[in-house]
């Protein structure tokens, strides 16, 4: 999915090396794992890629919540395929993070004990089938806005992971919109579900871009390193401009009285989300924070005997092979 509120690390290193590094980035070169890189660049990327990977993993839960209740076999298959893709995205991203010198298990432990975050959007509940549409349309839509520019990010493995992920995400977004179309043109109850889903997911989707970062020092450093490609406000505006006509096409109402096309700017004016809610969710007080983290911890703890068992078997097998040679 994406990463939010990543603070870049301060770097105190040889100015000459730093200048040469910056020159490579400015020239559009990709930085590869074995290349020299500032410690701050490495640490910021581990945090950003790790958080992105965790978001993919936790993001399985709100959608997994509806797999067993999908209304048709086809919808069930599509949703399964989507959640499977997300687990796959998690895998590429953990691999990209590993090239920076952390193991998957290390950063998984950091997710589980709360030292690392995942995207706050997954702390909202999925309450009706229309939420499967809204998540695909709005949440994946917002994720794509964040991720498309990251295909050009300076770190090679991250950039390559993003290229693969973006292809699948745009498919997910179309599937989500397809569910919304069916619901919005369906029975009155279905239409009500669709509107309700939009009402609940609109502002949390706007929050996915993070608070305004116009004056953030951290953002400036990340943008110079091409770890961050656009400001949060630019991406949020782009998302609103793209999404409002799609809502109109569905015959649904965006829950914002101030939403208005502005001829002068060529963009929509819109209300900011309630940022105090955003910080509450970030602090652990979202509607589902406890459940999501508890589910991941339970999966990890319950799975320990499986991981240990398979590892022990692999070691025995290797030992038998050596003994036979």
């Amino acid at each position: 999915m994406y990463a939010q509120m990543i603070k870049s690390e301060a770097t105190q290193e040889d100015p000459e090396k730093l200048a040469a590094f910056q020159a490579r980035i400015d020239a559009g070169e990709k930085i590869e794992p074995k290349d020299w890189m500032p410690l701050g660049y490495r640490k910021t990327l581990i945090r950003q890629i790790g958080q992105h990977a965790h978001s993919e993993i936790v993001g399985q839960l709100p959608e997994g919540n509806w797999i067993t209740r999908a209304p048709t076999l086809e919808r069930k298959a599509i949703l399964l395929a989507k959640v499977q893709d997300e687990a796959g995205h998690g895998l590429y991203l953990y691999c990209a993070a590993e090239t920076l010198g952390v193991t998957r298990d290390e950063i998984t432990e950091m997710l589980l004990d709360g030292r690392m975050k995942y995207s706050s959007i997954f702390n909202y509940p999925t309450l009706t089938w229309a939420d499967m549409g809204a998540v695909g349309w709005l949440v994946d839509g917002a994720a794509i806005m964040n991720q498309v520019p990251l295909q050009r990010t300076s770190f090679g493995p991250y950039s390559r992971a993003m290229i693969r992920i973006c292809k699948e995400e745009s498919f997910h977004q179309r599937q989500g919109y397809d569910i919304m179309m069916k619901m919005a043109s369906g029975t009155p109850a279905q239409k009500k579900m669709a509107q309700d889903a939009l009402n609940r997911f609109w502002y949390p989707s706007l929050m996915m871009f993070g608070p305004s970062d116009k004056e953030s020092v951290h953002s400036e450093q990340s943008m110079a390193w091409k770890i961050k490609m656009n400001t949060n406000d630019e991406l949020r505006q782009k998302f609103v401009d793209q999404t409002v006509p799609q809502a109109e096409y569905l015959g649904l109402t965006v829950p914002d009285e101030n939403l208005k096309w502005n001829e002068e700017t060529g963009h929509y004016d819109f209300s900011q989300p309630d940022w105090s809610e955003f910080f509450d969710v970030l602090k652990g007080n979202g509607p589902c924070n406890r459940e999501r983290l508890a589910a991941r911890n339970k999966a990890w703890d319950d799975g320990k005997w499986v991981r240990d068992g398979l590892l022990a078997h692999a070691e025995k097998k290797a030992a038998r092979k050596v003994a036979a040679e």
Binding site: I57, Q60, L61, E63, G64, I67, T68, L73, E74, K76, A77, L80, A81, V83, Q84, A87, G88, G90, L91, Y94, R104, A295, K298, A299, W300, D302, G303, K304, V306, R307
Partner: peptide, 29 residues
């Protein structure tokens, strides 16, 4: 099998279980 989604012991198993469920649902159709 689909009930496991997001709760498997390791990421590779999440992927494999979803894949198995997906095949079986496709065969059901």
């Amino acid at each position: 099998v689909s009930e496991w989604c997001g709760h498997a012991p390791v990421l590779e198993e999440d992927i494999a279980l979803a894949n198995t469920a997906l095949d079986l649902i496709g065969q059901t159709q």
